[in-house]
Design a protein around this nucleic acid. Structure first.
Ligand code: SF4
Ligand code: SF4
Lengths: 140, 140
DNA sequence: CATATATAAGACTTACAAAGTCTTATATAT
DNA sequence: ATATATAAGACTTTGTAAGTCTTATATATG
């Protein structure tokens, strides 16, 4: 089995939610976030690099440094995080590469799956980090 | 990249649609179906075996033998085919194994992803082979 | 009955991508 | 100056999908 959201993506998501939790209190060190979220430190570093490259987080080097969100948690969608780490969501190969399949001109499956892909992407677009944060800490 | 519907699953789907096309005219040999749908023959054999084990197709051995659908095309869903070949659709690991993650009791992401998983499964449940067949041959 | 044609079953190999580790360089607070 | 942090990317390991091969078995038909 392979999941739609992969392990590294889930890790990255945890890290992002962690940053969201401390948003506004200065940068969070990767070591601290990784420890808190149960993510292997070295992996967390790589994930943060990717998130940084896509501008989802800002970095500050040196002691007291670390990462902080690039925007307000309400302005970062789940889809952005997912696609930054694992690339575009794809239901079937023919929906990404234009020439993946000779049959695509009259394939009923493709039509339906494209519809599903559109829905999934839209669903993930509508979920933001702050929603995830609040949803998970209803009663602390 | 990994697609939600994997290559073998797509192959199996083509084969099933092929059987649907000739449904009612006696069995179709794997060799014929595989050739028509551009599926490597040996792989097609393995896929047909899986489909047979899950009762989606009936087999008849010997010359003039082959496979035919176990039920009417309108009674076989896309989800059945997909899950027969690649196992249950999973959005995230924690949605299949109950103890996959220690955080699941208060995780906002999990709640949302469960919702999505439900939608996706339901979507695939509602698509049947005959829909795929007609959808793809609108104007022949 | 002999034979050609088909499925049945599963071991085995290959190919590829995800996950994880390691190393070196660089910036900065104190 | 030094300790602490990120930056970047090569490298290794692991796991699963995809594909191949082999042997056994059932049956239509001459
Ligand atoms: S057969 Fe249809 S669904 Fe499958 S890859 Fe080709 S176009 Fe896409
Ligand atoms: S952190 Fe949440 S979404 Fe991720 S595996 Fe754990 S419960 Fe599931």
């Amino acid at each position: 089995m392979v999941d739609v959201v992969r392990r590294n993506t889930d890790y990255a998501l945890r890290l992002m939610v962690n940053l969201a939790r401390y948003h506004g209190n200065g940068p969070v060190s990767t070591r601290a976030a990784a420890k808190e979220e149960g993510v292997p430190y070295q992996l967390a570093c790589k994930l943060m690099q990717k998130l940084h490259k896509s501008k989802l987080v800002k970095s500050r080097m040196g002691p007291k440094g670390g990462f902080s969100l690039g925007r307000d948690p309400s302005q970062i969608s789940l889809r952005e995080v997912v696609e930054t780490i694992q690339g575009p969501i794809s239901i079937n190969r023919c929906l990404l590469a234009a020439d993946a399949c000779k049959r695509q001109h009259d394939c009923g499956a493709r039509t339906k799956l494209a519809e599903l892909q559109h829905y999934v992407r839209d669903f993930l677009d509508r979920i933001t980090l702050d929603e995830l944060l609040h949803n998970g800490r209803e009663k602390e």
